[in-house]
Design a protein around this nucleic acid. Structure first.
Length: 215
DNA sequence: ACGCTCGGCCG
DNA sequence: CGGCCGAGCGT
């Protein structure tokens, strides 16, 4: 998955609704220096996007993008592992175009952007400082369909293939598997923070909470 | 995959 | 004090 993301997906970006069933799901994640939102704007945020359409299948992230802290262009990241590394350190080590020379020789702020926030993908703001999962563990983000009560679900897959879906489950699992604790795995290496969709109305609004019960 | 609720927090 | 939203979990 790591390499194919680059060529395949950037070519498919233009196609809108008609997607080959085999490649139904496409997402993009990106790290961005949040130039506009002056609120927190420590320096960097993370973005994630998913191609629209796609049947009732799980929307799984398989393409990753980071925005240059200098020129604000988006740059594709070749693998989830690299993306997670960048996201973890994005505050201390802001991403620059030339950082991408590591996997794409000649990259610089002068190279035109190859992907943008057009209408073909679902973009979402990811949280910075999400820790990399421990070795052999996988952090899985699944984007829900439009109109759901939440934007996404975050899961961790253990080295044995078990799925954990909350920090409580992580805690219990580590208690029951001291092996991992001995290896140095700690709860602080996990975050269930989900990305936030850019599109304002992607997530269904909650029916105004019935204000209190009267008695 | 999706809904729902509880409780903390913030205006 | 009420509305919002994330965490957690049931289905």
């Amino acid at each position: 998955m790591s390499q194919s993301c680059f060529g395949n997906e950037s070519n498919n970006v233009m196609e809108e609704e008609n997607v080959a069933p085999s490649f139904g799901d496409t997402n993009i994640q990106a790290v961005q220096p949040s130039p506009e939102s002056g609120s927190l704007s420590m320096g960097n945020d993370t973005f994630q996007s998913v191609r629209r359409k796609s049947r009732t299948k799980p929307l799984t992230v398989d393409v990753y993008t980071v925005q240059c802290n200098c020129c604000y262009k988006w740059r594709l990241i070749p693998s989830l592992q690299k993306y997670e590394e960048i996201r973890e350190q994005i505050i201390e080590n802001p991403f620059m175009c030339k950082s991408a020379c590591e996997w794409e020789p000649g990259m610089s702020c002068d190279v035109p952007e190859t992907i943008s926030q057009d209408g073909t993908r679902i973009w979402a703001l990811d949280k910075p400082k999400i820790p990399r999962p421990p070795p052999k563990w996988t952090r899985l983000v699944q984007i829900r369909e439009e109109g759901c009560s939440q934007f996404s679900d975050v899961y961790y897959i253990t080295p044995y293939g078990q799925t954990l879906r909350s920090s409580v489950e992580i805690q219990k699992y580590l208690e029951n598997h001291p092996k991992f604790v001995l290896e140095g795995v700690t709860p602080s290496q996990f975050s269930f923070q989900m990305p936030t969709p850019l599109e304002e109305n992607y997530v269904r609004k909650r029916p105004a909470q019935s204000s209190k019960r009267k008695r």
